[in-house]
Amino acid sequence: MVTSSLAQQAIQPAAVEARGAFEAAVREHQAMVYSVAYHFLQDRPAAEELAQEVFLELFRHWHEIQSREHRIFWLRKVASRRCIDHVRRRKLRAHVSLDEVSEPFTWMPATDPLLKRYIEQLLGKLEEMPRLIVILRYQEGLEPAEIAEMLEMPVATVKSHLQRSLALLRRKLSFALPEEKS
């Protein structure tokens, strides 16, 4: 067991090998886990702390991970669960309805960093579960069925959250992207 005897592990070759593999896994997946947390929390220090906790949990469950694919699935699932827990526990931000977010005065070119920031801001105003679903769909490129499996909810619920969130975001963004108005 990886966590059973940390002092012994320091001198066991298998443990050293596992530790090396763990550190390589951290480097490989850090952007994925951190980005889910960052886009969800929109707070760099909190996202780093949460991502670290996710990887420490991976370290404790290292022996249960069967493959790289399993590891990716596991990391996304744990990161998602922790994001939801984090917001619910600490009430990180008082929820502001998307309708309360003011529209930008003028439309912005699609590559404008301000637009990117505006989208992030809009996303941050979504309820927790829809926000997470949008992140998993557009950051991680997951299909609704994969998201449903990860979040342990019906596919129809995921699709419904996605449709509602996209409609809300599109309505707000129509002010920034005039070509989307039609």
């Binding site: 850090q30 952007a31 699609a110 637009l115 989208i119 996303l123 557009y138 950051q139």
Partner: peptide, 21 residues
């Protein structure tokens, strides 16, 4: 759509600080 493409670009992965690992 452009809108979905915009969302995808806004949600591109970002790296944590250098000493994260």
């Amino acid at each position: 759509t452009d809108f979905e493409d915009q969302l995808r670009r806004a949600l591109e992965r970002v790296e944590p600080s250098e000493d994260f690992a």
